[in-house]
Simulated assay, not measured.
Amino acid sequence: MMRVNEHEITSEVSLCLPNGKLNPKAVGWTRLPLHNTDRIGHGSYGWGRNKRWEYWGITTPAHILALTVSSLDYAAVHEVWVLDRATHESFGSSAVGILGSSVTLPGSISAGPSRAHTAEITIEIDEVPTGTRLRASSTAGSAPVSFDVIAERPAGHEALGVVVPWNSRLFQYTVKDVARPAQGTVTIDGQQFTVPAGESWAVLDHGRGRWPYSMSWNWGAASGVCDGRTVGLQIGGQWTNGTGSTENSILVDGRLHKISEELTWDYDENDWLAPWHIRGELADLTFTPFYDRVSTMNMLVVASNTHQCFGHYSGWVAVEGGERVSVDGLLGWAEAVHNRW
């Protein structure tokens, strides 16, 4: 547990200098997306270290939905995934493309559509007047699956943006946008289900940066209603330690409260469904999983090992003025990831 002194950025700034290195003025956090990241993934500087992605996770009373569109310079990795919460049966597939022929990603957040097209997967992400439209389909796996969801953006809704600097050459800009009200449909093997408004929530993980080859991280997010207020939890660990930046925050009725502290994560790698504990001076959280989504890939140079557990949070997070905001019952996830990429 360690407090950090983080700088809030309130005006537009470029992530990179003209030579491609990190712009020192870009280091900090924002309530709204203010970073221009157009230089990531363009030109020869840092080729092979550039990582760009859009990940959306959607929780509903009956299902959990997820999509990934990503470019790692030398490969593009995409995924469509749906979990039936009652049966724990999952549907969907992933695809790996060589270089970037299967992917379209805007230079900066919301600056254009995101697309992934392979033989088995189609993903289309578009900004619309009420928010973001998420369309995804997979024809592989145990059954064909698709969803069409609007992640609404209420007036005044804030989202955490953070720049994490490892050095002047390697750094990451992330936007974690939690508690977006969601509605739409999901179709599994021809049977359509509702993503019900008022009970469904979308979370965005937007990433643009240049990463070290080997990295581990924790990430947790949850959304819902507690004590009559819309609450979105966003926490992370490992990858930000020692950088002077954190990705910890809580959203209360659309207003972002930054948690400038490195939190301690405690979980059992021999029993992933045992309760997780995430604590600090400003937070005391317990996460109780009901499902462990295990994902592994080993292509020699590129490899990953992921345990993404879904479940419910309890506990509190302290905000300005000392109020402890309850997160009891919030549905979301917590994950432990190690990548070589």
Rank of each mutant, 00 (worst) to 15 (best):
N167P: 04
T139H: 08
G141P: 10
V163G: 03
G161M: 15
H157M: 08
A119K: 14
G131H: 09
E127R: 09
R135W: 02
A140Y: 08
S114I: 10
V164C: 12
A159E: 15
D126V: 05
I123R: 03
S102L: 11
F147Y: 14
P144D: 07
R153A: 02
A140F: 12
R169M: 08
V162T: 14
F171T: 04
E120L: 09
T122R: 15
G156K: 09
G161V: 15
V163K: 07
S138H: 11
R133Y: 02
I109K: 01
A140M: 09
T118S: 09
S146I: 10
T104F: 10
I125M: 00
T132F: 02
T139L: 10
E120N: 09
P129V: 05
V103T: 15
D126W: 06
S142P: 14
N167D: 13
S146D: 04
E124C: 01
I123T: 04
R135F: 05
D148G: 00
V145P: 12
T118F: 03
P129N: 03
E120A: 14
G112Y: 07
G156R: 06
H157D: 11
T104N: 03
T118V: 09
P129C: 04
I121L: 14
A140I: 08
A111N: 07
G131C: 05
V162W: 07
L134H: 04
L160P: 08
P106V: 00
T118A: 04
H157K: 14
S110L: 13
T139R: 15
F147E: 03
A140T: 07
L170R: 15
G112I: 02
T132S: 00
P144E: 06
E120T: 14
A151I: 07
G161K: 15
D126E: 12
T104I: 12
H117N: 07
S138A: 15
I125C: 01
I109S: 01
F147A: 07
H157W: 14
P129A: 05
T104H: 05
T104A: 11
S102W: 13
S137W: 06
W166K: 10
T132L: 01
T130E: 08
T118C: 01
S138M: 12
S114L: 09
L160V: 05
E152L: 02
V128A: 04
I125F: 04
L160K: 10
P165E: 09
E127Q: 05
S114R: 13
D148A: 07
A143H: 15
S138Q: 11
V103W: 12
L170Q: 15
P144S: 08
P113R: 08
R169P: 01
G107S: 11
T130R: 04
E124P: 00
T122P: 00
D148R: 07
I123M: 00
G141W: 12
